[in-house]
C-alpha cells in the first residue's frame, strides 16, 4: 500500500512540474501580451494546485498527520488568479487600446477603464429624478 501511495504522490509531483514549466514557457514563447496572459494564469496555477495536493497526500498518507493548510493556500490562489489576470488585462487595455478600437458594451454604460463610474440617481420628495 505504501508503494501505491508513493506512486500517487509521484504522479502529482511530475504533473505539477510539467504544468509549471508549461506555464512559464508559454510566458516566453507566446507572441502577444494578451496571449501571454493565458499561460501563467491557468497552467501555473494548476501546477501549484498539483504541488499542494501532493503535499497534502504526503503528509496525510505517509507522515500520518493530515492537515488542511494546503487547501487554504489552494483556495486563496484559485480565487486570486482570475482577479490578477483581469487587472493585468485592464492595465494592458488602458495603456494600449483606444475606445474606438474595442466593441460597444451594449449596455447603458461604456467600458469601465475609459469612462467614469455611473452616478447614483437621486429621487426627491415628488418622485422626480433630481440632479
Amino acid at each position: 500500500m505504501e508503494m501505491f501511495y508513493e506512486i500517487l504522490i509521484t504522479v502529482f509531483l511530475v504533473l505539477a512540474g510539467i504544468f509549471g514549466l508549461a506555464g512559464s514557457f508559454g510566458l516566453v514563447k507566446l507572441r502577444d501580451t494578451m496571449q501571454r496572459l493565458h499561460a501563467p494564469t491557468k497552467a501555473t496555477t494548476l501546477g501549484v494546485g498539483s504541488v499542494l495536493i501532493a503535499s497534502m497526500l504526503y503528509f496525510g498518507l505517509i507522515k500520518g498527520q493530515l492537515s488542511f493548510h494546503e487547501l487554504l493556500i489552494t483556495i486563496f490562489l484559485f480565487l486570486t488568479a482570475p482577479i490578477t489576470a483581469n487587472f493585468i488585462a485592464k492595465t494592458y487595455m488602458a495603456m494600449n487600446m483606444k475606445p474606438e478600437d474595442i466593441p460597444e458594451t451594449e449596455r447603458a454604460y461604456g467600458w469601465a477603464i475609459f469612462e467614469d463610474p455611473p452616478q447614483p440617481v437621486v429621487i426627491d420628495d415628488e418622485g422626480q429624478e433630481g440632479a
Binding site: 509531483l13 511530475v14 512540474g17 510539467i18 509549471g20 514549466l21 506555464g23 514557457f25 501546477g47 504541488v51
Partner: peptide, 9 residues
C-alpha cells in the same frame, strides 16, 4: 524533477 521544472520556470 518538480524543483528543476519550477526553477527553469
Amino acid at each position: 524533477f518538480a524543483m528543476g521544472c519550477f526553477g527553469v520556470g
